[in-house]
Simulated scan of single mutants.
Amino acid sequence: MKKQRPTSPKIDDADLDLFRQSISGAKQFKQDTVRFNKAPSKPKLNELATQKKQHQSEFYFSDEYIPDIDTHGTVQYVKQGADRYLAKQLRRGDFAPELTLDLHGLNKDAAKEELAALIHACKKQHYYCASVIHGIGEHVLKHKVPQYLVQHPDILAMHQAPLEYGGKGAVLILIDLPQSDEFRR
């Protein structure tokens, strides 16, 4: 059985005349809205990722904070409450870096962004050890990179890299990964 469409009621001529009289003084509106030829573009994902990296690097890494570590000799650091033996293990090369970041040719601001991205990538991919190659050059990044890394709450330990991983021009870092229930057993 087919459904019938409801029919609209017929309008009387008297009602139609009354309607025409009520709108007799009305004027047609002029279209004054702006029509864009192209829809406004949304921020690109790359721009958002760059903004997030800048925010993270500005949040964690300060040029004004100078930690109490020796950046002129052998660089080593272990987070308070962590096992001091980690520094020795890093020095001996017991941990092989799973990611390597090369900072050659970067300035301090770009290095901060890349360090934040490295730590984020390590946490996302569950990498425990990474190598940061800062080079020797003018000694700017050689001194600043350890100072930045000490400020990040997810850095568990850091030590100057053994020769096979860059020697005096690099540091090995251990990332404090959240323990899952699978590893706690």
Rank of each mutant, 00 (worst) to 15 (best):
103 L>R: 06
107 N>F: 05
178 P>I: 08
4 Q>K: 14
98 E>N: 06
64 E>M: 12
150 V>A: 06
9 P>A: 11
46 N>I: 10
180 S>M: 10
57 S>R: 07
160 Q>N: 07
126 H>C: 11
158 M>T: 07
179 Q>C: 04
12 D>W: 06
81 G>V: 10
64 E>I: 09
45 L>Q: 14
130 A>D: 03
159 H>A: 15
164 E>G: 00
150 V>D: 03
132 V>L: 05
58 E>S: 14
135 G>K: 01
53 K>Q: 14
115 L>R: 01
137 G>I: 06
130 A>V: 04
135 G>R: 01
86 L>H: 02
97 P>Q: 00
147 Q>H: 14
116 A>W: 04
71 T>F: 05
38 K>R: 15
170 A>G: 01
47 E>S: 12
53 K>E: 12
106 L>I: 03
95 F>Q: 07
168 K>S: 07
76 Q>E: 15
123 K>S: 13
180 S>G: 12
156 L>Y: 07
11 I>A: 13
33 T>I: 15
94 D>G: 02
183 F>P: 06
152 H>M: 05
12 D>M: 04
71 T>R: 02
19 F>H: 10
153 P>L: 05
112 K>N: 07
44 K>A: 13
120 H>N: 14
114 E>G: 00
96 A>G: 02
16 L>C: 03
33 T>P: 00
152 H>I: 06
71 T>V: 15
98 E>R: 09
34 V>H: 10
87 A>C: 05
165 Y>S: 04
169 G>C: 02
16 L>G: 00
98 E>H: 07
135 G>Y: 00
23 I>M: 07
183 F>C: 11
18 L>T: 13
28 Q>Y: 10
158 M>I: 08
29 F>P: 15
81 G>A: 07
83 D>S: 10
107 N>K: 10
161 A>C: 05
1 M>P: 06
168 K>T: 00
145 V>N: 03
55 H>Q: 12
105 G>E: 04
158 M>R: 03
125 Q>I: 08
138 E>C: 04
115 L>T: 07
149 L>V: 10
34 V>E: 13
